[in-house]
Nucleic acid binder design. Structure first.
Lengths: 382, 382
DNA sequence: CCACTTCCTTCGGGCATCGAAGGAAGTGAC
DNA sequence: GTCACTTCCTTCGATGCCCGAAGGAAGTGG
């Protein structure tokens, strides 16, 4: 029932099923994987021998012998992860279960260019690596979520809006070099999508995860994996033209983009124009929670615009769920507006079994996703 | 370089590579598949023994021994195919190469309900089967392209607009029963997408094929295969709301859908309202070719509306190509308008290597796709 | 306590693929 | 012409993955 990874019954796949709770015993794995019991047993044995999996007492009987429960050992491997925002760097260690340890967020202005950002990231992650190793957890790799387009094959940043100096920056190579670990760099929305998929929707095959914060991004899960499209830019909904934004110049160089009316940055700017102090998405959220009417109106409007664009996506892509993440997804009016527009505009066939929900993975979902991506790409062999 | 089918080196895959011209010898197959030469040889031998593949003289040397050329034998298996339109039934036999034989189109009003349509289809296909068998070509199955939503798992028609009596009709089961052959039923746009992909864009992985005729549909190829989404309704762009259609009631029960301003039916209705006789998409095409200004304007406008919707799709899905098919794609102004809007509105990253083109598979592309789908689903073993 | 279920392992065997080795046929330099 | 080299394809073990049968261990429920 869970996302396929690589081969249907590979070691990595087994590990994932145990880590995310889909399977807690060999018998569960047999049911999930559809492989012969002997095959599963052999694979589990390998993983136990390699220290990547541990037996952990017995589970409840289902009418026969009790299963021997499996779990990922506490001393299991971790990946270091960093979730980069335009104004912060969030770091942490992510285990195979998707749990994040030792999470820390610091303010940092990414627009100041790549060098200071790399210094900050390397500093934080090197400390983190040391602490993890001291705690007996081997560090397998590094995952980075970057708030802009990333070429997934090379780990290079491509033409990010509003971040001069980053274009074609070799972020993966640089970090790999500095940290001496394999590094995976992906778009932040893709990281969030991966994290949400694993944390809350592991059984779904087709999923759209929207990250609504200062900017707007989306990550697409198709057939249980991140879908990137031809050039790696799939999931962009930020620069779709909407009529309500007619003529407004966008950071992408075009005019009338969704981002210019529905992003956190746009809402904050509109509030400031009305003399209401607001800078970040968190500020907006606070205003909405305090029932500031102007903020609520703007957020609801943003939700309607996002919903209008998503209605095309839902009809076209026919996902099983639309998950709203990012700071603004904490605002109920936004979620309600998106829901309303989608149910009103989309085909009944596309919405009849569609889940529309705010992200449930918490503030670490993006971090988790970046870490899981790194763990996944690192070979599970010891 | 070609679409993956099932296992990377299955018999069906080998057959497909030879059929579509990607490989003409065992050595080519080795290069395409990345398998060991011995493995490929064994698989080819099986297919030759089964009569599904034949040796055909020798090819050109590449500096060593000449390869023994492989081809699909003329007496190879075919599938019967039917491409259903709201007002016609087109039938033919499709070989593994994607060539269609014995094609015939008859007028038939599908809105009259399923029973007369089934009679017409069975009549035509039974004749066709007899002729093919007489010519020594075994008939492996039947593929149907239906102009409405199809549940791909069951081959049932689901809630087609404007076609009372078809809802939940068991088209696959009925035809399989009547013809005594395995039947595949799919949406006509999906069939067209499959046909176009094989005929002209076999090396592309992500592709959107729009069918613009009396209605508007689209078929999506992702990772080289038809993408269906959660409920099989993926690819719908017809019922996206566009502002220019504000308030117009649509056959789907909603208002303001793309279909109400950009479909062949809508254009024809607008022309009739202006006193210009037009009924079918073919009529519109004729008017455009005769430079009737009103028709040209309407078609260009339709292209802009379709382009606006596709711009969302292109940003989100990031395909390698957008292919415009269906009768209206023969109108240059429509293609030009779609191109213009896409290049204007989409992200440079999404369009920089995007191909936007009219379908090249000819009028039989949909038929071919339906037939290929049937051949593909029928096991290649004899 | 006895039949039945579930869980898991051991063992032999099937099947697909691989790589090495080599034969057949061709090219091109000398 | 001939000799080295290339390409094409086949034959023949060897290997590795997976399966199913058989069976032991442990529990449940009548």
């Amino acid at each position: 029932m869970t996302a396929a990874e690589e081969q249907p019954g590979s070691a990595a796949h087994v590990l994932e099923l145990v880590a995310n709770g889909s399977a807690a015993s060999r018998a569960d794995l047999v049911r999930e994987l559809g492989l012969a019991a002997s095959t599963v047993s052999a694979r589990v044995q390998e993983l136990v021998d390699a220290g990547l999996l541990a037996e952990d007492g017995e589970g409840a009987s289902r009418g026969g012998r009790r299963p021997r429960r499996l779990r990922v050992p506490a001393s299991g491997a971790v990946a270091l992860a960093a979730d980069l925002g335009s104004h912060h760097i969030r770091t942490g260690a992510v285990g195979l279960t998707g749990a994040a340890f030792d999470v820390e967020e610091r303010a940092h202005d990414l627009t100041a260019g790549p060098e200071p950002a790399v210094e900050a990231i390397v500093g934080r992650l090197a400390d983190l690596a040391e602490r993890q190793r001291a705690a007996g957890r081997p560090v397998r790799g590094v995952g980075i979520g970057f708030p802009g387009p990333v070429d997934p094959a090379t780990g290079r940043i491509v033409a990010p809006a509003r971040m001069p100096g980053w274009h074609l920056y070799e972020l993966r190579a640089t970090l790999a070099d500095r940290l001496g670990l394999p590094v995976v760099v992906d778009n932040d929305a893709n990281a969030l999508a991966l994290g949400e998929h694993r944390a809350a929707h592991a059984s779904l095959r087709h999923l759209v995860v929207v990250k609504a914060g200062r900017g707007i991004g989306s990550g697409v899960v198709s057939h249980g994996r991140i879908y990137r499209g031809a050039r790696g830019s799939a999931g962009d909904i930020s620069h779709v033209r909407v009529d309500a934004a007619d003529g407004r110049p966008c950071s992408c160089g075009n005019v009338g983009c969704l981002e210019t009316v529905a992003s956190g940055a746009a809402i904050a700017a509109a509030l400031r124009a009305d003399g209401i102090a607001a800078d970040s998405a968190a500020d907006i959220l606070r205003l909405v929670e305090h029932c500031e009417p102007r903020a609520t109106t703007l957020v609801r409007q943003a939700g309607r615009h996002i919903g209008a664009v998503l209605s095309v996506v839902v009809n076209f892509f026919n996902p099983e769920a639309v998950v709203l993440g990012g700071a603004l997804s904490g605002a109920e009016p936004l979620v309600a507006a998106v829901r309303g527009v989608l149910y009103e505009r989309c085909l009944p066939m596309a919405t009849s079994e569609l889940t529309i929900t705010a992200a449930s993975g918490g503030p670490d979902a993006g971090l988790t996703g970046a870490g899981l991506a790194a763990l996944q790409s690192a070979a599970p062999a010891p």
